[in-house]
Design a binder for these strands. Structure first.
Lengths: 117, 117
DNA sequence: TCCCTAAGTATCTTTTAGGATACTATACCA
DNA sequence: TGGTATAGTATCCTAAAAGATACTTAGGGA
């Protein structure tokens, strides 16, 4: 890690990952390969079309996902992770691992609060 | 990584790291140890007192930083990373590494765009 | 002839994050 | 007597993210 936090590039990764839906979209595509728009939508309960479209376009812009349109009616559009997008996997791994620990940490804290109250 | 993205805990890590100031605050404390409020403020050009206070309180709430108040006037308050907070380091490492690659990736893309235009 | 589908747009409203600015307390120092 | 320093609060305001809802397109099937 750099000596000077000012020069650090953590924000770059963060800017791609933040948002209520982006991490889970990336995880779905990482784990399940190519998916149609409607499949993704079904996989993300609560997301609106507008949001899904927006997030996917932003990820495409960053070269994290690839969008393939089949010129047919009704439309068919497939999304998949790019090779470059796959390079985010270690970050997501690290976060997942930490998140699991974090759940335990919170539970322990709650237990302690109960005991002292 | 879990088979089902729904059960994944990536969001937990993300929720702690997001925000315009949190990652850089954590990095400062990780690298420079204990710091007074005013020192942190000087290290973060552009941050307002309100924001710094807010971010620090939220990190304290999550047990990422520790806050120690010395009962004296003018006030003295010291902040430091907790052991638990230190466990975020691998995530920040992974992000930093990726961010560095990302910069290169963007530069290559720009070069290609210039060549095709 | 009309409805269905898939993958969107277009508007409008709500929620959240972030920022600007002013104010506070109180010991110490000139 | 008044100014300085530190670590905050208290209000108000703007911008960005997110959400709700309605509309579009055009081929195929009943």
């Amino acid at each position: 890690m750099e000596k000077q936090p000012e020069n650090c590039r953590v924000e770059d990764a963060l800017s791609i990952l933040v948002g209520k839906w982006k991490p889970i979209i990336i995880l779905h595509l990482l784990q399940q390969g190519t998916k149609r728009f409607s499949e993704l939508k079904r996989s993300l309960p609560g997301i609106t079309q507008k949001m899904l479209t927006k997030q996917l376009r932003e990820l495409e812009e960053e070269d994290i996902v690839q969008r393939v349109v089949y010129p047919q009616v009704p439309p068919k559009v497939e999304y998949s992770i790019t090779e470059y997008g796959r390079s985010l996997e270690p970050i997501l791994e690290a976060m997942h691992e930490w998140g699991t620990k974090h759940t335990l940490h919170k539970m322990e804290k709650q237990k302690q609060n109960q005991m002292t109250s």
